[in-house]
Amino acid sequence: MSIIYLLLAISIVIAIGFFIVFIISVKKGQYDDVYTPSIRMLFDDELVKETKQTNTTKTEKLN
């Protein structure tokens, strides 16, 4: 039954992993503007239709 220690450790590591991902996403500014991405998403199709250019990824490179 000492397997429970391992299971606990794994579950906590996974939980902390997600937590770190959350912190990174906040740091990158994902929560600064929660409105525009919902509209931007709708444009991606139109960009492909209109032009042959590759879709510009709009991630912020600098913080």
């Binding site: 525009t36 931007r40 709708l42 709009k58 912020e60």
Partner: peptide, 30 residues
Amino acid sequence: SSCIWVLENLNKLQASVTTSQVNFPKKTVR
């Protein structure tokens, strides 16, 4: 929404613009 679209496609008007990103609630473009 058209404003967002055109401002985020500024690089089609001027190739030297690498990226542009609109923050609609704040009415800013980076």
